[in-house]
Design a protein around this nucleic acid. Structure first.
Lengths: 352, 352
DNA sequence: CTGAAAGCGCTTACAG
DNA sequence: CTGAAAGCGCTTACAG
């Protein structure tokens, strides 16, 4: 069986009594080889314990089939769900994507990008880290490597993006809060160096203004996009002279934190204070109280992003249409009691 | 600046007026090159927009520097934490590891492993998927590629494993339940095709027997290691003629599900029924009631695993010592009220 | 300190 | 249908 030194196509050729070109051809599934010959070669491949050397092949072919997914925070289940959606389509395309985590660190992101380029990636899906410099992707662009942004984008970039309709989601959520009778509203968490932040805050503002509620600027407080950040933001806003009675949170993690902080203050979320999240992670449904949140179909966006890079690679282009995914407001219990167990408020959505 | 076609060391050599060997040497940081020459080369590298072709280098050097992390379920925050621990050490070693997700699917795992081998990985950390065949790693072994198992292991394998002391953790948790006065105990979730399952169940049994409580076999119910699985298990056990009054759960996800199911039945976890989890994910602390769980220091085990592969690669061996990490029982509220907010019961732990 | 030459494991025209 | 030859972009002795 397997010999100690790595077997090459030359070993196979010797074993099967053919030339190495023939071996290469059967390796590539060419129809040019006579079936008996092909079978003999395949048997030899087994016998020598051959492992295809993709690096050598790529070197010769001058292109690889490796696709990278660069994720800003793998511990956030939201991004893990995104990754899973992408993997689904890559798997059926017979591709094994490599995931790399930047842990929200632009320096690490640069290392990751560099390594991926050296590895000669064919294409990339990236959810850029916070504070990514505008020119962080220039090398990739000049090299002509297809890149698509998922969920997050850079301020001025020609790289295509796949993301939910953040503005619309925030708008729907805010109107819901207002329809529940709230007049003093907060916007909690997130930071202004993220484009998403401005999109979501924009939807919040628009809804407030449409209802004649000038949003209280002091109740718009930035913070970490985590439970801890949510706790801090809620405390800040409750200390205001005229505290709000409800809040739209930048994402679900912030919302969970806000609810925790409410309890610590002896307030019951849903009854004494309304909170809405964003993203609708799996946990939202199981929380107590169940969290009303904006659902963005994370795995679906992941699939979409994967299809887009695949197409870009195939057509050797570096450009593609943006895709803005539809969103739903999923009404549960965190804004007070409801008639039914769960209600969905759909947005028309659509592509931009 | 950057030209369209990829620049090679030959372009650099031309630009700098040296030979390509010289370029290669400065690329590798060799001290053999005169500083002025090196600087001229470095400038040329910038000017031509050069990207190192690691594939070509690996081909020539006959070894790569890519390390793979094969994770069985990236959506489980527990494994994401593990990944983060490993990345920490790889980052400081200047390595960008590639993460691949098998989604608990042995077939996908095979594809992933194959792809990684073709990519000529230098080493691998893997948390094997459920139902992995005993010979799934034979190719890797005969190729002499270092592999270490993290968190999970295969029944009969010589591959080194880094894992927590599952037996001890379950033992501590069970004794705690008994000390709280419980006599009828359940063991919920997990499946017997996982080695960990037997380790944890073994600790549970030993504690029961030590206290003269023959564990009720009908209260040991396998199930999905998820919230949903936990709900089903708890319902099953409550329907028993002599239902238990407390349960050790296979992991925290199962415990969260069990608590949910209790509430649905009008029972309050911690007051009417005691539940203990395993792994102590971040969420455990924030749950209501806060979950008593066995802490295993997930990122720490990740770091350890990373150090071990690194060492194995360096010393060109395929063998290493197993490492069994110490565990603590973190007592919170899910087994009833406590004096202090949180208590830790330490195990001596140690390496095996 | 630097250059010319061979070779890593493949694929791809090109002959036959 | 199959073989001989060149070449992908590097590194590594080997001379000088």
């Amino acid at each position: 069986m397997a010999s100690r030194a790595k077997a090459t196509i030359l070993d196979i050729a010797r074993e099967a009594g053919v030339s190495k070109s023939t071996v290469s051809l059967v390796l590539q599934g060419s129809g040019l080889i006579r079936p008996e010959t092909a079978n003999r070669v395949r048997k030899a491949i087994e016998d020598v314990g051959y492992v295809y050397n993709r690096g050598a092949a790529n070197l010769r072919k001058a292109h690889s089939n490796v696709i990278g997914m660069v994720i800003n925070d793998l511990t956030n289940p939201f991004f893990a769900e995104l990754a899973v959606g992408m993997e689904r389509v890559f798997q059926s395309a017979g591709i094994v994507p490599f995931i790399a985590n930047t842990a929200e660190n632009p320096v690490r992101q640069e290392e990751v990008l560099k390594s991926l380029m050296e590895q000669d990636v064919a294409g990339l899906i990236v959810s850029p880290a916070r504070g990514t410099r505008p020119d962080a992707f220039r090398r990739l662009e000049t090299a002509g490597i297809p890149v698509v942004f998922a969920m997050r984008r850079l301020p001025e970039s020609r790289i295509p993006v796949i993301a939910p309709d953040n503005h619309r989601g925030a708008y729907l959520a805010t109107r819901h809060l207002i329809a529940k009778g709230h007049r003093r509203l907060a916007f909690l968490g997130g930071s202004s160096d993220l484009v998403v932040y401005h999109e979501r805050l924009g939807g919040f503002r628009e809804a407030c203004e449409a209802e004649g509620i000038g949003p209280d600027e002091t109740a718009i407080v930035e913070g970490e996009t985590s439970r801890r950040g949510g706790m801090a933001c809620l405390d800040a806003v409750l200390a205001l002279p005229q505290p709000p009675t409800g809040a739209l949170c930048f994402n679900d993690a912030v919302a969970f934190g806000a609810m925790l902080a409410l309890r610590k203050q002896g307030l019951e979320p849903g009854r004494d204070f309304a909170v809405v999240g964003f993203d609708d992670v799996v946990e939202a449904e199981h929380y107590i109280p169940a969290l009303t949140s904006v659902a963005v179909d994370t795995p679906g966006l992941g699939e979409r992003a994967a299809h887009v890079v695949l197409k870009m690679i195939q057509s050797r282009t570096t450009r593609a249409e943006d895709h803005i995914g539809a969103v739903n407001l999923v009404v549960r219990e965190s804004c007070g009691p409801n008639r039914s167990h769960e209600t969905r408020i759909h947005s028309p959505g659509g592509a931009a």
